[in-house]
Simulated scan of single mutants.
Amino acid sequence: MSHRQPRITLITRPGCHLCDNARTAIARVAGQTGDEWVERDVTADIELERDYGERLPVVLLDGREHGYWRVEEQRLLDDLRRAAG
C-alpha cells in the first residue's frame, strides 16, 4: 500500500449538491485510474474556508487547483494519466 498523499483532493461543504455530483465524478475517474483521493470539508478548516468560500466544490490535482463547480472528468483523467506516464 502506498504512503503517498492522494493525488486528488476534493474540497466540499456539507449540503452542497454540486459537491455530491463532484464526489460521484471523482470516484468514477479514480476508479478508472486507481488513484486515491481525499475529501476535505471547508467548515473544518478556516484556511480552506478563506481560500475557497462559496466557490465549491474545488478539485486539486497534486496540490494545485484543477477546477471548481464541476468536475471535467475527461480532462482530469487525461491529466492523471499524463502525469503518471
Results as ranks from 00 to 15, higher is better:
1 M>Y: 03
2 S>H: 07
3 H>S: 13
5 Q>H: 10
6 P>G: 11
6 P>S: 13
6 P>F: 00
7 R>Y: 00
9 T>M: 05
9 T>V: 15
9 T>S: 13
10 L>N: 07
12 T>G: 02
12 T>P: 01
13 R>E: 15
15 G>A: 10
16 C>Q: 09
16 C>Y: 04
16 C>T: 10
17 H>T: 14
19 C>K: 07
20 D>K: 08
21 N>W: 00
24 T>N: 11
25 A>V: 07
25 A>C: 08
26 I>Y: 02
26 I>G: 03
27 A>E: 15
27 A>Q: 14
28 R>S: 14
30 A>I: 01
31 G>F: 03
32 Q>E: 15
32 Q>D: 08
32 Q>P: 01
32 Q>S: 08
32 Q>H: 06
33 T>N: 05
33 T>E: 03
34 G>K: 05
34 G>H: 05
34 G>V: 05
35 D>R: 01
36 E>D: 14
37 W>N: 08
38 V>C: 11
39 E>R: 08
40 R>V: 01
40 R>G: 01
43 T>Y: 07
43 T>H: 08
43 T>N: 13
44 A>N: 12
45 D>K: 10
45 D>P: 08
45 D>I: 07
47 E>D: 15
49 E>W: 08
49 E>C: 12
50 R>G: 03
51 D>C: 10
51 D>A: 15
52 Y>L: 09
53 G>T: 05
53 G>Q: 13
53 G>F: 06
54 E>G: 09
54 E>M: 09
56 L>Q: 03
57 P>Y: 00
57 P>H: 03
57 P>N: 07
58 V>T: 14
59 V>P: 03
60 L>A: 05
62 D>Y: 08
62 D>M: 06
64 R>F: 06
65 E>W: 01
66 H>M: 11
68 Y>F: 15
69 W>Q: 15
69 W>K: 11
71 V>I: 13
72 E>H: 12
72 E>M: 07
72 E>R: 12
72 E>W: 00
73 E>P: 09
73 E>G: 09
74 Q>L: 09
74 Q>V: 10
74 Q>G: 02
76 L>F: 01
76 L>D: 00
77 L>M: 11
78 D>V: 11
79 D>P: 01
80 L>Q: 03
80 L>V: 13
81 R>W: 01
81 R>I: 12
82 R>H: 14
84 A>N: 14
85 G>V: 09
